[in-house]
Lab assay of single mutants.
Amino acid sequence: MDVFMKGLSKAKEGVVAAAEKTKQGVAEAAGKTKEGVLYVGSKTKEGVVHGVATVAEKTKEQVTNVGGAVVTGVTAVAQKTVEGAGSIAAATGFVKKDQLGKNEEGAPQEGILEDMPVDPDNEAYEMPSEEGYQDYEPEA
């Protein structure tokens, strides 16, 4: 019985440690998101679009440190934060509304985080759909 109880105690310690790591990862992701939003706020009209992409990228980098179902929630929060940063930029006159959601080359930025393969159960990952990809044929 002692062996059984000791095993359960060790398992509990492992769960607590994993929860603490997840909590730490979420806190880091939130900190990076805040950094990115402050970065966007300090940019001029020309830099705002690039700044919004930076927020998304920093958040995406930190999301990889967070495991399990938390990833889905962090990704949703990050996307809403990026959308909010863009709205703030438009409201303050840093950028025109028609410039939001495009990178410096004018290509749409939507789907940055949505296409990231995420499995809350950590069982399997699927690649994003290939609808947006084109076949590449090298020139002879």
Score class of each variant (00 low, 15 high):
71 V>E: 02
124 A>L: 04
40 V>C: 04
3 V>T: 00
81 T>K: 02
28 E>D: 05
64 T>S: 08
102 K>S: 01
89 A>T: 07
119 D>H: 09
125 Y>L: 08
37 V>W: 15
24 Q>G: 03
12 K>T: 13
49 V>R: 10
120 P>Q: 11
135 D>V: 09
122 N>W: 08
54 T>H: 12
43 K>T: 03
7 G>E: 04
67 G>R: 13
131 E>P: 09
4 F>E: 00
60 K>A: 14
28 E>H: 07
126 E>F: 07
14 G>Y: 15
137 E>K: 04
124 A>R: 08
100 L>A: 12
33 T>P: 00
82 V>A: 11
7 G>P: 01
133 Y>K: 03
95 V>R: 10
53 A>H: 11
121 D>E: 11
103 N>S: 07
87 S>Q: 15
34 K>N: 01
4 F>L: 06
4 F>I: 07
38 L>Y: 11
10 K>F: 04
124 A>T: 03
68 G>C: 04
11 A>K: 00
33 T>C: 03
20 E>K: 03
106 G>S: 14
91 A>V: 11
47 G>Y: 14
8 L>N: 00
19 A>S: 02
117 P>N: 09
128 P>Y: 06
45 K>D: 00
118 V>S: 10
10 K>C: 02
66 V>A: 07
15 V>A: 03
9 S>Q: 09
119 D>G: 08
57 E>N: 08
97 K>Y: 15
15 V>T: 01
59 T>P: 01
68 G>I: 15
83 E>Q: 10
94 F>T: 04
54 T>W: 12
37 V>Q: 00
38 L>T: 03
46 E>N: 11
73 G>H: 10
35 E>G: 04
36 G>W: 14
21 K>A: 12
114 E>W: 09
53 A>G: 06
52 V>H: 01
66 V>S: 01
110 E>S: 07
21 K>D: 00
37 V>L: 15
57 E>H: 05
27 A>Q: 15
92 T>P: 04
88 I>T: 03
110 E>N: 09
15 V>K: 00
133 Y>D: 12
32 K>W: 15
85 A>M: 14
128 P>Q: 07
15 V>D: 00
104 E>Q: 07
1 M>W: 00
1 M>E: 00
60 K>E: 01
17 A>S: 08
24 Q>H: 10
87 S>Y: 06
